[in-house]
């Protein structure tokens, strides 16, 4: 399948990140929350790797761990796109990490908070350039103009401030910033969730175009399955910090195999007749329903059995290109 055609770009192994849960007068620690829990996956060169799940499941944390904006508690991030041996990004010091920073960038969800309102578009888009090596002003400007052309913004707008732009245009500026260093990997954290439907289509097209033109590898985070299906080659479903299903797009959308994936399908707006599926509104996440020893999805699962309470399933291949973390070999209905 794909694996033979495309070389590996990135291999994530047992990535873990936990946060302290605090409360009380002196912020006493009351426990930890595992935002990302033993996550492993492989991203191939030039593919768009989709990460879905409801909010709070750890998608953003995963993305930021990969870019080393957050320090993981454990695990490895192997970077293959490198002459010689793959490099473990988690073992690099901040200084050694610097050359790799130019090769990996991020696109943010919120087009407002992701641009510093006090900087001009030139300063914003040029920031990754200046963080690298010294660069003559002439070349600096030319490259910014290039990047703006990429995202279909007029280079004349370089001297304006972000408040002059609409949400969609701001998102383009954010994309220009991410692409100016010609990175190999881009983590796009819900880049279209905050946009209007018509603008969403423009941005999705743009991302797709740029991805194939620059042969980008992209980790595309979203909570909307329709968007994921449109743009991603591989789909990974995340639930409470763990991956529950990773599959090629066609396999995933034909036969999702995890009960949680099925629930995501149910939630796609306009797909099912809402009046028909009553079970949704009653089932939702709360701390009380977690099942510590068994499957994390236990309380919401329609297919659960006694085994699920005792034992946690691990992510394993059920067919080529399809990995699921469920005790049962389910074949659920996709679209």
């Amino acid at each position: 399948m794909f694996a033979e055609e495309k070389s590996i770009q990135l291999k994530i192994e047992h990535l873990t990140k936990s946060y302290a849960l605090k409360s009380g007068f002196f912020d006493r620690q009351k426990g930890t929350i595992k935002a990302v829990d033993d996550v492993s996956f492989t991203v191939r060169n030039g593919e768009i790797f989709g990460l879905v799940g409801e909010s709070g499941c750890g998608k953003t944390t995963t993305g930021r761990l990969i870019l080393r904006v957050l320090e993981p508690n454990g695990g490895d991030i192997m970077w293959y796109n490198n002459p010689g041996e793959p490099v473990n990004l988690c073992r690099l010091s901040n200084k050694k990490m610097r050359p790799f920073r130019q090769k990996m960038q991020m696109i943010f969800q919120d087009p407002y908070s992701s641009l510093d309102p006090r900087m001009t578009v030139m300063q914003i888009v040029g920031e990754p350039l200046r963080a690298g090596r010294k660069i003559p002003m002439r070349e600096y400007k030319a490259r910014i103009a290039d990047a703006l052309n990429f995202v279909r913004l007029h280079p004349e707008m370089m001297n304006r401030y972000p408040h002059a732009f609409s949400g969609g245009q701001r998102q383009r500026i954010g994309i220009a910033r991410a692409l100016i260093t010609k990175p190999d990997l881009v983590v796009a954290d819900e880049p279209v969730s905050a946009l209007d439907v018509s603008v969403q289509a423009q941005i999705l097209n743009l991302l797709q175009e740029l991805q194939s033109a620059l042969n980008l590898t992209m980790i595309f985070i979203a909570h909307d399955l329709s968007v994921i299906r449109h743009i991603c080659d591989t789909v990974a479903v995340m639930y409470l910090g763990r991956l529950v299903e990773v599959a090629d797009r066609t396999l995933f959308f034909q036969t999702p195999r995890h009960p949680y994936s099925e629930m995501l399908f149910d939630a796609v707006p306009g797909l099912k007749n809402r009046k028909a599926n009553e079970h949704m509104s009653k089932n939702f996440m709360n701390d009380e329903t977690l099942c510590p020893s068994g499957c994390l999805f236990f309380s919401r699962c329609r297919y659960k059995q006694a085994l699920c309470r005792e034992q946690a399933p691990t992510l394993k291949a059920v067919s080529p290109g399809h990995n699921v973390a469920c005790h049962f070999d389910l074949e659920l209905k996709g679209i």
């Binding site: 409801e54 909010s55 399955l225 707006p269 939702f284």
Partner: peptide
Amino acid sequence: LDVTTEAQILD
């Protein structure tokens, strides 16, 4: 909200 929660609220 995300789509799952959205669906729940709508229901």
